[in-house]
Design a protein around this nucleic acid. Structure first.
Lengths: 232, 232
DNA sequence: CAGCTCAATATTGTACACAATCTTGACCGG
DNA sequence: CCGGTCAAGATTGTGTACAATATTGAGCTG
């Protein structure tokens, strides 16, 4: 890890607020609270062992990132998602990541190509190890994340990275690989290798087309057997 | 100057944080502080007449919207804009608003078409009145904003509106009309009318093409005679 | 019994005091 | 004279008390 002595994402505050943010976010990713649950500032403050002030900062960040919904004088609720949210998010990802791949094809540098290749190697090694144990596939998520981030940043649009981060609805996307069938994992790895080839040959249209296929395939896996809540 | 802290409106429950947010945002849009200026919580609290707590909430929102930069234990600075930022933002607007127009063409409802027509009427009335007085063109901004928002929401993608807002609400986009030449204002009004026609005929490709032209034209006006700061 | 009123309670919003951290500038040594 | 060091001041981060507002549920009314 590089020298990051403190929260560095631009909205971080002090130490307590960061800790509260990390703890609450981790609970949300573990589905600790069902959708619609009110997160009470006092209770969180007691559980985490800080005052309400840093809790409020943490909750505001989680609202901004789409984990929670906020209402004045009422507070925060855990956000649920339905078919409509998944459709919206994947639709936007198709637009934005395809745009990123198209631009990256003519801008990416050799060092970034090398990073992508190494990430492919690492992901395939994880796949190899996880053949009978789907839980191990969770290790793919951070590698896949970095793969896409390298392409996003190679696109050379300063605002694209934060926009894409705000679109990617973490609670949902984080578990994508769990829904994949084994052959879909293989196909995903193939897409990654093909993307590297397309980018390396500076072929913008090819790069964009592979990325579009890649995200469509993820959408199908996400929608399969999905059970959605009733939205009020 | 005119900040009266008691009973500022008829609603009676004006939240201090909302009021602080509105006041600071208004100052930022009026270029009250040069880029790089530190906004001190204590001073803002004194000027606005509330405590630091709602000021901090307002500053967090403005950081999230891209008006300010934040550093831990240092506070907020007014964000400056360079050529790279403008390129990035208009590039993203082209992608996202074109996507919105393409989708809206087959989803927009008669009531929304009517709204767009009325907004065109209102904008053209403002243009008429402002022929010799470019300052009056600032009145176009909220109308133009609503025009684009109607199309964005007609696209039927739940996540698109906040994403576009986070890209578009940048301070410089809000001042676009001041940079337009008179014939460019006319062309912009023409684009709006053409968009309504394209949407009304449910022609997705036509709608997308007009929107793309519309934003390209705005980009050219924004870049003309622009003087950029030296970025650190 | 359904629906409403309204007071008691619970929860968020704000103010303020203190702690932690950064910034500034004088002082010192080379 | 220049650069580093460190203490004093300035500014943000956190804790806590109180005010404003929403929620809840009992009691009332038709």
């Amino acid at each position: 890890m590089t020298g990051r002595k403190r929260d560095d994402d631009g909205t971080g505050h002090g130490h307590s607020a960061d800790r509260a943010y990390a703890i609450i976010r981790s609970g949300l990713l573990r589905d600790e609270w069902p959708a619609g649950t009110r997160l009470l500032e006092t209770e969180l403050a007691r559980r985490i062992g800080v005052s309400r002030t840093p809790i409020r900062d943490a909750l505001r960040r989680l609202v901004n990132e789409g984990f929670l919904e906020y209402a004045a004088n009422v507070g925060c609720r855990v956000r649920g998602w339905g078919r409509n949210d998944i459709d919206s998010i994947f639709d936007l990802r198709i637009e934005l990541e395809t745009y990123a791949a198209r631009r990256a094809a003519t801008r990416i540098r050799p060092g970034e190509i090398r990073q992508l290749t190494e990430l492919c190697d690492a992901m395939e090694a994880v796949v190899e190890r996880s053949l009978g144990l789907p839980e191990l596939r969770d290790e793919l998520t951070p590698l896949n994340d970095r793969f896409h981030t390298v392409i996003t940043e190679a696109a050379g649009n300063a605002r694209l990275t934060p926009v894409l981060a705000s679109v990617t609805f973490a609670p949902m996307v984080l578990r994508t690989f769990r829904r994949y069938r084994e052959e879909e994992v293989m196909r995903s790895m193939g897409h990654h290798r093909e993307l590297v080839s397309a980018l390396e040959s500076a072929n913008a249209d090819w790069s964009a087309a592979v990325m579009r296929s890649h995200i469509h395939a993820g959408y199908v896996a996400m929608m399969r057997d999905a059970v959605f809540e009733i939205e009020p």
